[in-house]
């Protein structure tokens, strides 16, 4: 389909960019803060929670939910900008 052309390539590139940054945050929350750095983070306390433990059993899950809604918003804007949304 010829009409997709250059705009389509740019749309897909921007889409991949959004996915990259969101998945980077996903990785940092799910793996870096909750697992790899949990031992040093546990020496900091957030009320009754050791911080690493809190990220692992609460914080990361909250961020996961927020990430998906942010993705929806960013993609909605992108779809509108490139006029490929469903109306």
């Amino acid at each position: 389909m010829a009409e997709r052309g250059k705009d389509y390539k740019e749309y897909w590139r921007r889409n991949l960019q959004i996915q990259f940054w969101l998945l980077l945050i996903w990785f940092i929350m799910g793996y870096v803060l909750s697992v790899f750095l949990v031992v040093p983070l546990n020496s900091i306390h957030l009320g009754g929670f050791p911080l690493g433990f809190w990220f692992a059993q609460q914080g990361a899950i909250y961020v996961f939910v927020v990430l998906i809604f942010v993705y929806c918003k960013l993609m909605r804007n992108l779809d509108r900008e490139f006029e490929v949304d469903e109306g």
Partner: peptide, 26 residues
């Protein structure tokens, strides 16, 4: 499971929620 494992129960908590980010995005 978490009650008996303590912190290591996290692997399941995050493993079973983090997948939805992949599902939604990819």
């Amino acid at each position: 499971l978490i009650s008996f494992l303590g912190y290591p129960g996290t692997y399941y908590l995050l493993g079973w929620t983090g997948g939805y980010v992949l599902l939604a995005l990819l």
